[in-house]
Write a protein that binds this DNA or RNA. Structure first.
Lengths: 101, 101
DNA sequence: GCTTACGGTAAGTGAATACTTACCAAGAAC
DNA sequence: GTTCTTGGTAAGTATTCACTTACCGTAAGC
């Protein structure tokens, strides 16, 4: 399998991006709010958001001069499915083997 | 939350490491087998395995001069729980909001 | 119209990290 | 014992990638 789930895992492999996702759990936020109080600059945040967007982990919506970002449920669902598949196929059978010895 | 799940996500953010995990789905393998046919050298594989081990995604077991690596069901379960928590709390409520408008 | 706020993009820099080669230790085979 | 296999580690290099500053476009407020 070589779909965009690979991209999602790459996207999740960065602390700042994970922090952004955490902040978005409460609801949509404009970029300025997202960058507020962070140690990195706003452009850096924009770049992270692009990565997250390409990975379908967030979506964006323009509202005037602001741009609201929010979690993308579809993308997350796809990732979850991917991981569940991984676990389902390999790990349960595996766990069994481990415990039987 | 700032446990080793962070490490796990960092560990998953690399193509080669994901490939190693894929290979381990079929069962335990020694390092040589894991590195076999890969574009990177065997020491590189060893280093990746260390990262995966520190993230509790794999375990190792010595068998003579060989060392067998296998998926770590416990670590994967913890990660799954972490992600399910993330999704459970945020996304379902979120999905609802999205669909209602 | 002018100005201010918001945010994306480009170009360059710096730091993290994946990689190589060389080396060494431990066990198996003889 | 010697030799061969297996694999971890060290040191250095290279590449990726996160970051900054500077700039530009667009929409809102006046």
């Amino acid at each position: 399998m070589n779909t965009y789930q690979e991209r999602q895992l790459d996207a999740l492999g960065d602390v700042t991006r994970r922090l952004l996702l955490e902040r978005l759990r409460r609801g949509p936020l404009p970029v300025g709010e997202l960058a507020r109080g962070l140690t990195v600059s706003r452009p850096a945040v924009s770049q992270h958001l692009r990565v997250l967007k390409e990975a379908k982990l967030v979506r964006d919506e323009a509202a005037g001069t602001r741009r609201y970002y929010s979690l993308d449920p579809k993308g997350f669902a796809a990732l979850r499915k991917y991981l569940d598949n991984f676990w389902g196929e390999a790990l349960e059978a595996f766990q069994a083997k481990v415990e039987e010895k």
